[in-house]
Amino acid sequence: MTTSPGNLTDQARQAGEQAHHSTWMDRAARIGLVAYAVIYLLVGWLCVQLAFGDHEGRPSSQGAMRELLQQPFGEVLVWVVVVGMVFLVVWKGLEAAVGHRDERDDGKRTRKRVMSAFKAVLYAAVAISGFGIVTHSSGSGGKGGSSTTTWTATVMGWPGGQLLIGAVGLAIIGYGGFQVWTAWTEKFAEKLDAEGRSGRSGRAYLAFGKAGYTAKGIAIGLVGALFVYAAVTHDAKKSGGLDEALLTVLQQPFGPVLLGLIGAGLACYGLFTLARARHLSQ
């Protein structure tokens, strides 16, 4: 007896749901979150170092993994981070495909699934970056925003490319604003289970989350601002990634103080992510 395409789809959905709610996926997600936390803790540390005048490191996920690579057993550590990122890609990919089924509103469920897919892409980009670093296939030095500048210049050469880059910048700014909104409404608390939100430790986790999401939102917003500026000036070299955005902060009045505060906030985001790995809400 042949199986109809509808039955195959239902079976695939059921298998995906079982995998998403399985014990091994829960453990994999927690490992991935720890790896992600390490990246943010290192980015925060690199920001503080930069604020105090050490310009060797680059405050970005690539810079964090290069810093990790220089430590004892560095290659092993970077591989662990890469594997952790892959776990997060699988977790968010399954969530995008079959997750959020407890959400009764179809529109909200769709938005949450799109956001999960977006996060899976971000985690995949970090994993690919780390893989390139640990296999020595990406450059060991150079300007952190060079690849961003290259593709920005390519897009600007398209018909309407300047408007597209500006729209990308505005979208990034919007996402940064959403992170700040998440911080001040404490929506991030939903990512912790009941134990993680209670007691003295719970108050500390919430403080880390508020500072962390605020700093993350500001940093992301700065990246978006660079894209908008590049579009307005029609100069791809004005765009850049996280490291370029934070270096721009350093060049402003009271730059070292501002960069140090952002770095401390990003480290707080790392600490909150560690708490989330321990108290992961299902």
Rank of each mutant, 00 (worst) to 15 (best):
G57W: 13
G157A: 15
V180K: 03
V155K: 01
W184R: 06
Y205P: 00
V168Q: 01
A117E: 00
M25P: 00
L250D: 03
G16K: 00
A28S: 09
Q14A: 13
F208A: 07
T154R: 13
L77F: 05
E244K: 15
W158V: 01
W181E: 10
G84T: 08
A225F: 06
E67K: 10
E244D: 14
A230C: 08
V114D: 07
Q162W: 05
D193G: 07
K238R: 14
F131W: 12
E67R: 11
T135Y: 02
G74P: 11
T248P: 04
H279N: 10
G132V: 06
W24T: 03
M25F: 02
S129M: 04
Q14M: 11
A264Y: 03
G196P: 04
F131A: 14
A117L: 14
F118E: 04
W184G: 10
G145Q: 04
A124F: 14
Q62S: 14
A230P: 04
R30F: 03
S4Y: 07
G161I: 05
G93H: 07
L247M: 12
L46Q: 15
I133A: 00
A225T: 09
A219C: 03
V43D: 09
L122A: 12
L192E: 10
S140H: 13
A204H: 11
G221M: 01
H136T: 12
A29D: 06
H100Q: 01
I172V: 15
E195R: 15
A264R: 02
W184T: 10
G99H: 11
E186H: 14
S60Y: 12
E190L: 09
S137F: 06
K92M: 02
G16R: 00
G169P: 00
I39T: 02
I31A: 02
G57A: 14
A267R: 11
C47N: 15
V155I: 09
H100Y: 08
E95Q: 01
A167W: 07
K112D: 06
A97C: 01
Y40A: 12
R58D: 05
G224K: 07
W91L: 01
G44T: 09
H100K: 02
L258H: 07
S239F: 08
E75M: 10
D105W: 07
A96Q: 14
Y36T: 03
G6L: 11
G217T: 08
